[in-house]
């Protein structure tokens, strides 16, 4: 049976991500939900530094570019000034979990009524593929050329699990874009994270496992297979904290 699909206007401008990069999929899911809610002209997207900067050229809506790591703090300020608008921080793992770990966790801790999306592609992609706190054991990056050694650099960080322990936080989930099935699940997480803010329920965080074929040095086929077999088993997919009924 045919399922009608139309490109949302907020992603109607061609994006500047690399071929096969999963960012574009999350961009579209967010756009779909915003348009479903009728918030195209009532959303301010705060962009972190990293590949999310590419959205300056393609995200067809209001967007503020802040510094590396300060997305949650900036989105907090936006929400304080305009509580009537949807305030979203869109960041990568290096941005939100490494340099911006303090801002990310403190915004969650205070239960700021913002929605944070974090692309986790297991590396610092914009700067050319350096090791991130999310890099998998053994994964080769330009700063872990023999593969990440957890004995020296720690095991990959799981921030959503920690954020979910704060008592008041409204919604925390981790999705992935490595298959159509997971993308459809992720759409539900995106929707919950946005609805939680619109309903005044509090802070919401959705981490998204995302392929980075360019910096992983893999085809899309290999990338999604690696995500399914290696990454997703470590980074448990699903809702880590469901919305209160």
């Amino acid at each position: 049976m045919a399922v009608l699909k139309k490109t949302p206007t907020m992603v109607s401008i061609p994006n500047h991500f690399c071929p096969g990069c999963g960012h574009g999929i999350l961009n579209r899911l967010i756009a779909e939900v915003i348009e479903e809610k009728g918030y195209e002209k009532k959303t301010i997207m705060t962009l972190g530094v990293g590949c999310s900067c590419n959205m300056n050229a393609s995200w067809n809506g209001d967007k503020i570019q802040c510094a590396h790591g300060r997305g949650a703090a900036t989105a907090t300020g936006v929400k304080i000034a305009r509580p009537d608008l949807l305030s979203i921080a869109y960041q990568g793992d290096g941005d939100a979990y490494v340099i911006g770990l303090a801002e990310t966790l403190n915004a969650a801790y205070r239960n700021e009524p913002i929605t944070v999306f974090v692309i986790n592609n297991n590396n610092f992609a914009m700067t050319g593929g350096q090791m991130s706190w999310t890099t998998m054991p053994g994964q080769v990056t330009t700063t872990s050329v023999h593969g990440r050694d957890p004995a020296l650099t720690g095991m990959p960080i799981r921030v959503p699990e920690f954020a979910a322990t704060f008592p008041d936080v409204a919604y925390v989930a981790r999705g992935s874009v490595h298959s159509a099935k997971e993308i459809n699940r992720l759409r539900g997480y995106v929707k919950n994270a946005i609805e939680a803010q619109l309903n005044g329920e509090g802070y919401a965080l959705v981490e998204v496992l995302c392929q980075c074929p360019t910096n992983w040095g893999m085809s899309v086929e290999k990338s999604i297979k690696w995500m399914e077999e290696e990454v997703a088993p470590y980074y448990t997919l699903g809702e880590l904290k469901g919305r209160r009924k």
Binding site: A75, G77, V78, I80, R82, E103, N106
Partner: peptide
């Protein structure tokens, strides 16, 4: 740093 970016976000919206 967080404090100054909170101001940054709010004043971007005119507050």
């Amino acid at each position: 740093m967080a404090a100054v970016y909170m101001i940054f976000g709010a004043y971007a919206c005119g507050m």
